[in-house]
Design a protein around this nucleic acid. Structure first.
Lengths: 138, 138
DNA sequence: CAGCATCCCAGTGGATACTG
DNA sequence: CAGTATCCACTGGGATGCTG
């Protein structure tokens, strides 16, 4: 997702206008949720702690740049913990913090919703695209 | 958020690796969640149906380009309905579909989580940034 | 009023190469 | 092994102007 570096000024008005959108943290969280990789990483770490390389293998399509960066972001938000083992070769283990674990439930609720409604969503998409196609033909 | 136009091939492995991430619809939904504007629009429409212009006013910072585009996307996913009133001047009303309404609950669960934990998140960020600052100083 | 088209820049994220 | 650094292509999204 695209999070603006400069804070939006008018969110107070926005949230007043409609929803439970706090100043920033909500956006931060939703940013992670919408992020292509964050949820995948959170999911993997939800199962068990992973080493860096394990995560790479678990998420075949992620570049190490994105993995590093996303992990950094998740750590910064307090969702993921990093532990370094001063062995040779060095090992680094990532795991969910208590905060991160507490997020799994609501996140899972959303993905569960998505899964149980994915038929409807696919149908809606198909309908929409078909209707659009017809419109273009006319 | 950034959704890839070309589907990822290896998600089967990815989801096998860790989480309940269906082929695509879940990503579609999470994309909307992470999107800068979708949740705001969903929230506004969750309160009541809005006209195009009302939405613009409710979301002061959105450009009409993004509003149009996001609404289109939400309609395509089946979350939002559009009704045209052939009046003069023409009026268009947007509202949540039943599917859209059913999504509000899990979405609200997540934003609720974010809100009740935003203190922890802010603290984590501050800690992280401070530690980083120290590291740079050293 | 609602919304499409064009232009354009900043930021995101991939590939690759290098380090502790 | 676990990153960091550089380069670069792509696109998300803002501003502006036009149409039904």
């Amino acid at each position: 997702m695209t999070m603006p570096s400069s804070p939006l000024k008018s969110w107070p008005e926005i949230q007043a206008a409609g929803f439970s959108l706090e100043n920033c943290p909500v956006r931060d969280v939703l940013g992670h949720v919408g992020d292509k990789w964050s949820t995948l990483i959170l999911g993997a770490l939800g199962k068990r702690a992973h080493r860096f390389g394990e995560l790479r293998r678990a998420l075949p399509d992620i570049s190490q740049r994105m993995l590093t960066q996303t992990l950094r972001d998740l750590r910064r938000t307090g969702l993921v913990a990093r532990e370094v083992f001063p062995t040779v070769p060095p090992g680094v283990e990532y795991s969910l913090t208590p905060l991160g674990r507490s997020m799994i439930a609501p996140l899972a609720a959303l993905t569960a919703w998505a899964e149980s409604n994915h038929a409807a969503i696919r149908a809606a998409r198909a309908d929409f695209d078909r209707a659009e196609e017809e419109a273009r033909a006319a």
